[in-house]
Amino acid sequence: QGDIVVALYPYDGIHPDDLSFKKGEKMKVLEEHGEWWKAKSLLTKKEGFIPSNYVAKLN
């Protein structure tokens, strides 16, 4: 089961498979690959890669 993270900063995706998000948006982490994680937005239901240093895990 994936962790839920919250965006600390907004992110505008650079690549087509990036997931753009707004500050405060919550996402479910699907896979962790070093600095880039695959996640699904709980708001938009879209999936893509996010920079892990832009988010914090919720406990």
Rank of each mutant, 00 (worst) to 15 (best):
K28V: 15
W37L: 15
K40Q: 14
G2H: 13
V29P: 02
K38E: 05
W36A: 06
F49Q: 06
T44S: 09
H33C: 14
Q1C: 14
A56H: 09
F21C: 03
L58R: 05
H15Q: 08
G13S: 11
Y11F: 13
M27E: 00
K40Y: 13
D18G: 09
I50P: 01
G24V: 01
Y11N: 02
D12H: 14
I14P: 07
G34K: 05
A39I: 07
P51I: 03
Y11C: 05
G24Y: 06
I14K: 13
S41A: 04
S20N: 06
A39W: 01
E32M: 15
L19F: 04
K26L: 15
K23I: 09
F21I: 03
Y9A: 08
K26Q: 11
P16N: 08
K46A: 10
Y9M: 11
K46G: 07
K45N: 13
K23P: 06
E31Q: 10
I50M: 04
H15S: 10
Y54M: 09
G48H: 02
L8S: 03
W37Y: 15
K26H: 14
A39G: 05
L30R: 03
E35N: 10
A7Q: 00
D3F: 15
L43W: 14
S41W: 03
I50W: 01
D18P: 02
Y54N: 04
K22N: 08
P51W: 04
D17K: 11
G13C: 06
H33A: 09
V5N: 01
G2Y: 11
F21Y: 01
N59I: 14
E31C: 12
L30P: 01
E35I: 12
K45H: 15
T44Y: 02
S52I: 10
K28S: 08
L42H: 04
Y54W: 06
K23T: 08
H15M: 10
A56S: 10
F21E: 01
D18S: 14
D12G: 08
K26G: 04
M27R: 00
E35Q: 12
E35D: 12
E47N: 05
S41H: 09
T44G: 03
K38S: 06
H15E: 07
V55F: 13
P51F: 04
W36K: 12
D17A: 11
P16T: 09
L30C: 06
P16F: 08
E31N: 08
I14S: 10
G13F: 02
A7L: 01
G2L: 10
Q1H: 11
E47S: 12
N53P: 05
E25V: 01
D3E: 13
N59R: 10
A39M: 05
K22W: 05
V55S: 01
E25R: 00
K40I: 14
L58D: 08
L8K: 07
I14W: 08
K57Q: 08
E25S: 03
E35T: 13
I4Y: 08
K22H: 09
E47A: 08
N53R: 14
K57F: 13
V29E: 00
P51M: 05
E32H: 11
Y54P: 00
H33P: 04
M27W: 01
K26E: 07
H33E: 06
K45S: 14
D12P: 10
A7N: 00
L42Q: 05
K45G: 15
L42N: 04
Q1T: 12
I4C: 07
I4S: 04
L8P: 00
K28Q: 15
S52D: 04
L19S: 00
G34F: 04
I14N: 09
H15V: 05
E47F: 07
K28T: 11
D12R: 14
K46S: 07
S41T: 04
V6Q: 07
K57H: 11
V5T: 02
K38G: 02
I14E: 10
S52K: 15
L8C: 10
S20H: 07
Y9S: 06
P16Y: 08
N53I: 10
G34S: 06
V5M: 05
L43C: 11
N53C: 13
K23H: 06
A56W: 09
L43A: 11
S41C: 05
F49M: 15
D12Y: 13
L19T: 02
G2W: 13
F49E: 03
A7F: 00
G13M: 06
